[in-house]
Amino acid sequence: TGYYDVLGVKPDASDNELKKAYRKMALKFHPDKNPDGAEQFKQISQAYEVLSDEKKRQIYDQ
């Protein structure tokens, strides 16, 4: 599964769309709200870390 799929956004998503999707998913799977969501929360955080950084995103998109 790709990072875009993890966040539920298209590859041409804007920074604002990425942030909005990340916040929505992070709230849904945060371990405090969803004890079984810890692994998914890590994936969401990693996806956002890469896609929100312009240089990392360019490398990922290659």
Score class of each variant (00 low, 15 high):
R57A: 05
A26Y: 15
Y22E: 00
P35A: 07
T1L: 15
I44A: 04
K10E: 07
K19Q: 13
V50K: 05
S14T: 14
R23M: 15
E49C: 14
K55F: 11
V6T: 06
R23L: 15
K20V: 14
E49P: 02
Q40D: 07
D15T: 14
Q46S: 06
A26F: 15
Y48G: 03
K10Q: 08
L18P: 02
R57H: 03
D53K: 09
K33R: 13
A26N: 04
Y4G: 01
K20P: 00
V50S: 03
S45K: 15
G2N: 15
A47G: 02
V6H: 04
R23N: 11
E17R: 01
Q46K: 13
S14G: 07
Q43T: 08
K56Y: 05
K33G: 07
P35L: 06
Q62N: 10
P31F: 08
D12Q: 06
G8T: 01
L18H: 02
A47D: 02
N16D: 15
K24Q: 10
F41C: 06
L51A: 01
L18M: 04
L51K: 02
K10T: 09
K28F: 08
I44H: 02
F29M: 04
E17G: 03
A26Q: 09
L7P: 01
K42N: 08
L51Q: 01
A47S: 03
D15V: 14
K24I: 12
K42S: 11
T1W: 15
P35H: 05
F29W: 08
A47Y: 02
Q43L: 15
S45I: 14
A13E: 01
E39I: 10
R57M: 04
Y4V: 02
D12L: 05
K19F: 13
N16Y: 14
D36P: 02
D53W: 05
S52Q: 07
Y22C: 07
E54Q: 13
D53C: 11
P31I: 07
A26E: 07
Y3V: 02
Q46D: 11
S52M: 13
A38D: 07
P35V: 07
Y4R: 02
Y4F: 07
G8F: 04
Y48E: 02
P11F: 12
N34Q: 07
P35C: 09
Y4E: 00
L7N: 02
R23A: 13
K20A: 15
N16T: 13
L51D: 00
D12M: 04
Y22G: 00
F41N: 00
I59V: 13
G2L: 13
G2E: 09
A26K: 10
Q62E: 09
K24D: 12
Q40N: 06
K55M: 10
K24M: 13
N16I: 14
K24W: 07
V9M: 02
K56I: 04
K20Q: 14
D61V: 02
P11K: 09
D32S: 12
K42Y: 10
Y3G: 00
K33W: 11
E54H: 15
